[in-house]
């Protein structure tokens, strides 16, 4: 069962890694976007979203992720999803997120895509 949403962020070079835990809904999505803008405002335009501890997402959460993708596309940035639960990966594929964002099995592979 999904725990309360929280996230942990780390930065490396021109990249921010956002590690999430829990249900990515309105609250979770807003927290991710806020965290993104905080770092994007400092000029970071590479984002790795590590969803290893998040296996449920709703469409409101997805709309926040699309907002990040659109913002990064304007600045030739990258959004890379890692450690995706198979059901989330399928959902993102159907929603078309991978047309504008990338995916990697793990963090090591994600860094190679930047």
């Amino acid at each position: 069962m999904s725990p309360e949403f929280h996230l942990v962020t780390e930065t490396k070079d021109n990249c921010v890694i956002i590690n999430t835990t829990g249900y990515i809904n309105n609250i979770g999505g807003q927290k991710i976007v806020d965290e993104f803008y905080k770092h994007n405002g400092n000029g970071i335009n590479n984002v790795i979203l590590n969803l290893a501890e998040s296996n449920v997402v709703n469409s409101i959460g997805i709309s926040f992720l699309i907002e990040i993708i659109e913002k990064l596309n304007q600045s030739n940035g990258n959004l890379i999803f890692t450690n995706l639960d198979p059901s989330i990966e399928k959902t993102f594929t159907i929603m078309g997120l991978f047309q504008f964002a990338k995916k990697a099995d793990n963090l090591k592979e994600a860094f190679k895509l930047i």
């Binding site: 249900y23 309105n26 449920v56 709703n58």
Partner: peptide, 10 residues
């Protein structure tokens, strides 16, 4: 959890 997520329930 699937029913909640797909209906956008909090």
């Amino acid at each position: 959890e699937r029913a909640a997520a797909l209906t956008n329930a909090s």
